Simulated assay, not measured.
Amino acid sequence: MTVQRSPWANRGWPVGTFLARLPITDRRILLDLGVHRSHPAGDTLIRQGAAGDAVLVLLDSVVAVTAGVENGAETLVAIRVSGDIIGEMAVLDNTTRFASVTACRRSLISHVAGSAFMEFLHQHPSAAVAMNQLLGERLRQANRRRLDFTGYDVDVRLARALIELAGQHGHRLAGATDVGVRLSHAEYGALIGANKDSVQRALRQLSARGLVETGRRKVLILNLTELANFADIAQ
């Protein structure tokens, strides 16, 4: 369903997202290129292996990026939120989608044709620079997570993932830090390369140390400095 546009260009976007990186003039032009659509929770926005004919700009959204491999296993690659852009890789290199994207809740998304997005980058160098910076950051995050799989136990990998998520999507709440996304134990496991039971044990261990507090798909970081020390992250 197509919905009427709002003045999204003037909104304060989460730090690190694509829209936050753009000058407001470029942001306004990009958002004017797209068709704004509302999607229900659970809607498949991008399907792995499909043609890459558009990019999606998340206006009011939380989505999960998942990729399947030949043995049937599925991995949670990333969580993206309002202000992020998804589907850009297939458009930039003219290939099929490497992952699927699903709406985690009802979401408002701007659909921008791939050809229009490429022309936008060509005409707006600052946007092209922002795109390169974002892709470089995502590559570093992916490489760091692969190293975590081989270098750390599950509890440390989980702590590192929680800090990464909080840095991207979190907010302060009554002396603690809300991680900012709602994931199941299985989804955390897919993110850090562990099974659901291992994630449950790791969360109990972190809670027993007084580092986190857990609720229904909710994780609060009680002491960010101590959790970073536990996770072997330099402050």
Rank of each mutant, 00 (worst) to 15 (best):
A9C: 05
N10S: 11
P14D: 02
L19G: 01
A20L: 04
R21K: 11
P23I: 07
T25E: 15
T25Q: 14
R28A: 12
D32F: 09
V35F: 08
R37N: 09
D43N: 05
D43Q: 09
T44D: 13
R47P: 12
G52A: 02
D53A: 06
A54F: 09
V55L: 02
V55F: 02
L56W: 07
G68S: 06
G68L: 05
G68Y: 08
V69D: 13
A73V: 10
A78W: 03
I79A: 01
G83T: 03
D84H: 05
I85K: 13
I86T: 05
L92P: 09
L92G: 08
A99L: 01
A99R: 01
S100W: 04
T102M: 04
T102Q: 10
A103M: 03
R105Y: 03
R105S: 04
S107W: 00
S110T: 02
S110M: 01
V112D: 00
A113M: 10
A116L: 08
E119W: 10
F120P: 15
A127N: 03
M131R: 00
Q133Y: 10
L134H: 03
E137I: 11
R140C: 14
Q141E: 13
A142K: 05
N143T: 15
L147D: 15
G151M: 15
G151Y: 11
Y152S: 10
A161N: 14
L165C: 07
L165W: 07
A166D: 11
G170I: 05
G170D: 08
R172K: 13
D178R: 03
V181M: 00
S184M: 06
H185Q: 14
A186Y: 10
A186F: 11
A186K: 12
Y188A: 05
G189R: 02
A190K: 12
I192S: 03
A194H: 04
N195C: 08
D197N: 14
L203I: 12
L203F: 13
R204Q: 12
Q205H: 11
Q205P: 15
L206N: 01
S207H: 09
L211R: 01
E213N: 05
L220D: 11
I221M: 02
N223C: 08
L224P: 15
L224Q: 15
L227H: 02
A231G: 05
A234I: 14
